[in-house]
Structures are given as structure tokens and as C-alpha cells.
Design a protein around this nucleic acid. Structure first.
Lengths: 246, 246
DNA sequence: TACGCAATGCGTAGCCCATACGCAAACTGG
DNA sequence: CCAGTTTGCGTATGGGCTACGCATTGCGTA
């Protein structure tokens, strides 16, 4: 693995961006980077990020733990590969779609779906994205705003706003879905009812009393997400109208 | 530690909410929960969450590793205590402040400061908050909207929106600040310049070209945060005006 | 065909980590 | 002074990541 130094980059990036030697002389590989990454993603999806260890991954692939290190520099590098591959391609729209709000909404909804299917992504993200997979999503979001009068800086700000919201909402949604077996929100609501002393937390007690944390009768789990997203995009719309008048 | 079962709660919560036995008979403690939590917070602040291990924490406290387990049920419980203690008290304002926007802005800015001083908080949050420390912040944010015509459900949605944004912005800001020694953003900008192929990522390439990722000459690091927050609150304002007309 | 190079698979071993268990130490009320 | 109680902590177990080096396998070439 320590073939070239090329940079101080995490090596996963050198591979992801195609800085790789041709190499065709040696033994035929029984393992491949793609298989390793796919197995790692499947394992994290099924049993959570905490269950992802090199040993368990090797077991799932039917190879010895140390064999993985021929294709991956270490666990951190493996996670970089996972972050690149898991989201898949972003939604498609032209360079300057007429309906920025619809495009950005579609982008947000699809990304929300990705995070719900791979909850570990949110826990893993720590540094700014530098891999092709995540940059493609970033580019798509910027393109959704291509028809607006916003400057590049404002567009980026808007995209980050939406991105942060999607991540937060997905994290909240997964944590409520994943834990107990049955009435998941119900447990949290009951606990808050007991803990929210009206003298100490007046507003919270009123909110609990109003049933904010109880599951909505006629609403899916994505309805809260859509409501918040609409608030957010209302603010973006204000900014766009303001920019159009300037 | 396994004194009462009281519930299926993580034990840290039983302590935080005052469900504790008086106990005054035994050996004088050389360690205390407060000292342990404070040392753990300091360690995570200085060397990052990855450097927080029971052994290193004990070393810092001058005791044996296993001594910690007399006061804490395990590492997870310790982290619950840290999450409760680290934020400190939220900003104060009355039950229904006249200036909701100013109040919520102050709340967001202070929370942003908390996250910048304790970057590990964002990495640690996974389940909905149930400790007094975090609930106090939640209550304060709900109170900031006390004078608006929004319903409780809408208020909660707005608070979550702001919370998600603050967390995301703080995570981005810390990851850029923490890594290299000098021109931190510069490195990311240079890398993107090299990687953002205009054919593959047209919008991203244009944004890089426009200097979006270069550090602003006459701007502090919080300016991006404030700009995004204002967009967001513009959207909240739209919702409030809409609710007032109904 | 036979040889050597290149690249892979993987066994061993070292270090760090969380923590169950049980005993020794220290203090207090009677 | 003793019994009871609570704390401090030594030992040991099981798991995790991974540096290192050797055996294995296939290709290109003579």
C-alpha cells in the first residue's frame, strides 16, 4: 500500500481520483476494493457503525483480517471509501433549472433518503468532503440554484444550510426509529412528561402538554422533515427576491 | 453502581435527576463525579474525543482506571454526564420576549460558541436529549418564541431547524480550524481547485473559481455563520407573519 | 519450459482499550 | 473496639487495530 507518496493525502483520495499505477504482473486478486467497501457498507447498514470492525468485515468476506490491508490503508481510509460510495449519484437536472425550489427540494429529499438508509454516514462525516461521490452531490445542489440571481457565495451558503438541516433531521429520525421495538416516540414523550417540571422548564412542559412529542395521528415520518424544509426554503426565497431587486 | 434498577434508564439520568441515595457511612471519597466529568471534558477539549480513554482519564486524575467505575457505570454513561455538563446554562430571557429574532439569535450564537469550545459534543450527540443540561437549552429556545403566534408544534420545528444549523455550521467550522497549523482553509481551497474538473463538476468549479472557499479578506470566521442564520430566520419570519394573519 | 519478479493472502505478535470480579483499605456509628 | 459500609484498585479477559514478514500465486521473458 505505501507505494507512492504523491502527497500528504489519505491515500484513499489518491485512489478515488485515479492516481493509481497500472500494475498487471502479480497474483490474481481474490479480493477487490469494491467488494470490501460494499461489504463494509452492508455491515454498517445492518448492524450499525459500532459493529464494523476489520475482523468482522473479514469474516463476512471469508478472508483473513490482515488481507484487507492490501487494499485499504487502515480503518480510516476504509471509511473514506464508504463515504464516497454509499450516497450513489445525485439527482439529475440541467445547469440552470427554472424551478430552483423544486430541484433543491428533490435534492434534499433524496439525500434524506440516503441518510435514512445509511445512518452511519452522519456519524462519520467530520472533515469537509474531498471525494468524488460527495462533491457530485455538492455540485448538484449548486446547480439547482443556477437559475437564481444569487452570487456564488450566497449559493454555497444556501446549500450548506439545506445540507445541515437534512443531516440533523436524518439523525433525529434515525435515532427515534432505531431504538425500541414498538412505540418509539411514545417512550420519549412519556419520559419527557415525567421529567419536564413546569417550574424549571416552563416552555418545554407546555410543549409536551400540547403533544408535540406524541406521534401525529395522520402523518408519515417525513412530514416533519418537509415542514422544516419549507420554512427553510421560504427564507431562501426571501434572499432570492432581495437579490433580484438589486 | 448497580444499586437500584428504578427503570431501564442509563443510570446517568437517575443521578442527574436526583434519584440518588443519601449514603454517608463509608470511606471518604478521594474522587468525585464532578471531578471526573470535568477532567473528561478538559481532556476531550484538549486532545479530541478519540484521545478520551478510561486509562488516560485516570492518569490525568491520578488514580487507577478501575476507580472511575465506582462513580460512572461505563464510558457511555460518562459521555452522558459530559453532554449534560459541558454546555453550561443557556442565555436568560423572559417567558415571552418581545424580540423573538434577537433572542433566538443570541441563543444560536451562544450555542455556536459552546460547540466551538467543545467540538466533541457534535460527534457525541446521537439520541434525543433527556438530561437537565440539554433540556434547559431546549426550553430556552422555545421561550424565545413565546411571544409569537406560532403553535407549539411549529415552535418546536423552528427550534430544531436552528439547532441543526448551529450544529452543522459548528462542525464545519471546527473541522476547518482544527486540522493544519496555518492556512487551514487555504489547503482545502487549493485541493478543490485541483480536483474540481469543470466538465465533471461545473457548478463547483465555478464556485471555486469565484473564491468561495478562499478565506474572506475582511471577515471573521463567524460571518458565514451569521449569514446563514439570517437566511434561516427570514424563513421563520415568513411563517410568523403567515400565522399572525390567520 | 524454467526462472525470476511482482503482487497478493495471511499468520504472528504487540499494543491499547473497556470492563467483570473480588479483595484490601478506610471511615463511622454503636 | 467492632461491624458494617463504601471506596480504591490489582488482576484478568476479550476484543480491537495494525506493523512486519513470509508463503503463495501468476505473468513475462529467456
Amino acid at each position: 500500500m505505501p507505494d507512492d507518496n504523491e502527497d500528504e493525502l489519505p491515500h484513499a483520495l489518491n485512489v478515488l481520483w485515479g492516481r493509481t499505477k497500472p500494475k498487471g504482473r502479480g497474483r490474481t486478486p481474490a479480493l477487490s476494493l469494491e467488494r470490501i467497501v460494499a461489504a463494509a457498507i452492508a455491515l454498517a447498514d445492518e448492524e450499525g457503525l459500532a459493529a464494523l470492525s476489520m475482523a468482522r468485515l473479514a469474516e463476512r468476506l471469508g478472508c483473513a483480517p490482515m488481507s484487507l490491508y492490501r487494499h485499504v490503508d487502515g480503518k480510516d481510509d476504509l471509511q473514506l471509501f464508504m463515504l464516497d460510495a454509499a450516497p450513489g449519484p445525485p439527482p439529475e437536472f440541467g445547469a440552470a433549472p427554472a424551478d430552483w425550489r423544486g430541484s433543491l427540494t428533490r435534492w434534499a429529499v433524496e439525500l434524506f433518503g440516503v441518510y435514512l438508509r445509511h445512518p452511519w454516514i452522519v456519524q462519520l462525516v467530520s472533515s469537509p468532503p474531498m471525494d468524488p461521490g460527495q462533491l457530485a452531490w455538492l455540485d448538484a445542489a449548486l446547480r439547482a440554484l443556477g437559475g437564481t440571481p444569487l452570487g456564488w457565495r450566497a449559493r454555497f451558503s444556501v446549500v450548506m444550510l439545506v445540507l445541515h438541516y437534512v443531516r440533523g433531521a436524518a439523525q433525529l429520525s434515525s435515532s427515534k426509529t432505531a431504538e425500541p421495538e414498538e412505540g418509539s416516540d411514545g417512550a420519549y414523550a412519556a419520559l419527557l412528561t415525567e421529567l419536564a417540571d413546569p417550574d424549571r422548564f416552563p416552555a418545554l412542559a407546555r410543549a409536551v402538554e400540547a403533544g408535540v412529542f406524541a406521534p401525529q395521528p395522520g402523518a408519515g415520518p417525513d412530514d416533519d422533515f418537509h415542514a422544516g424544509l419549507d420554512h427553510l426554503l421560504d427564507g431562501v426565497e426571501v434572499a432570492i427576491e432581495r437579490a433580484a431587486r438589486a
